[in-house]
Design a protein around this nucleic acid. Structure first.
Lengths: 185, 185
DNA sequence: TATTTTCTATTCAAATTTGAATAGATATAA
DNA sequence: TTATATCTATTCAAATTTGAATAGAAAATA
């Protein structure tokens, strides 16, 4: 699953009310190209679909400072808010880079406790995966790619790195860094 | 760009002659689901397109040990061989996981010297990227995701790991591991 | 003031990917 | 022997993604 829907919902949610170009501008400003690769066409498609599903609603922005062509602005509906939470939770448990990145980008909208729980779930999966990858047999002159030491080693090494990264993030959260939905000042 | 074409061309090339299901079986056996996520439909689509472009050609397999429904078997044409090499070269220079993985899976079909050159190109790009990511400013209470220490840190950490992995692979190749197209026994 | 460029904003056809359905052949169990 | 499951093999509609085109408005330049 791609992270377009989560990114679009999260961006609209963050802005309150916005249009396709606004979402695109934000993602560009966030250097999201580094961790995702979402093209304008995908944003507009996702928005049309979200609107058709009643997760976002066309809204007259109170802001008349309009530059350029006509735009259509949207806000989240209650269903959209629920869908955002669902997608975010699954992104935080995910092992896919794009999902993880989007998950981290929006994690502070959940409670610290919940994010920790989700990340612990991700960590367990990553640890199991890392262990499994190290059990795979390899051959120094591999008869097929599944036994190639470099291929298997690259994956195992990546998974071990991912475990470290998740642990580090969990530590930051335990240390009280960042401000989550349930943090009081 | 996805790695379907490279994977399909490489698999047919490796088998000499094969059909869509054969490609699918190989990719499954190679545990390719770990590093790519290619569904049967994509394989058949890619094959139709490759055939339409004259990169593969339908062929009567000499093998009458047919089990189950009718199949269409293909071989690479000379143009297909050239395309395979081109895609493989760009995969070995790539920073995308799926590309890299497919590149490593088939690297031994090139010459050792060429693979080293391509990986050195990849390494340079990764090093530059890692340095750049560490220059990005972050905020402890990030005003937007582009300044989130965890997001930026995750990418930088990943890139640094990737640099290490590429260096390690280069070392193996310099050490004379594996048998490349230009290696003599 | 006319022209060109840039920024704002979206649309659309074409290509690709997904997910599920279809269907033949062989093996298994009742 | 008959039903059922499993393995072989592909097809197809629907969903998504890409890449390029379109177009209005403002800024820059000549």
């Amino acid at each position: 699953m791609s992270s377009v829907r989560l990114l679009v919902l999260g961006t609209i949610r963050r802005r309150g009310v916005t249009h396709g170009y606004g979402v695109h501008q934000d993602l560009t400003a966030w250097r999201a190209e580094t961790w995702t690769n979402i093209k304008p066409g995908s944003i507009y498609h996702a928005m049309d679909k979200l609107a058709a599903q009643g997760l976002i609603r066309a809204e007259d922005s109170g802001d008349p400072v309009k530059r350029g062509p006509a735009r259509t602005e949207y806000t989240l509906t209650p269903d959209g808010e629920a869908e955002f939470k669902t997608l975010l939770e699954s992104a935080l448990k995910s092992n896919e880079f794009q999902q993880m990145a989007a998950g981290i980008a929006f994690m502070e909208t959940l409670s610290r406790t919940q994010v920790i729980a989700l990340l612990e779930e991700r960590l367990a999966a990553q640890e199991a995966s890392a262990v499994f990858l190290r059990t795979l047999p390899t051959e120094s002159q591999p008869s097929d790619p599944s036994k190639h030491p470099e291929l298997v080693g690259m994956w195992a090494g990546y998974m071990e790195h991912a475990v470290t990264a998740t642990r580090r993030l969990l530590q930051s959260l335990h240390d009280g860094k960042y401000t989550f939905a349930d943090d009081v000042e």
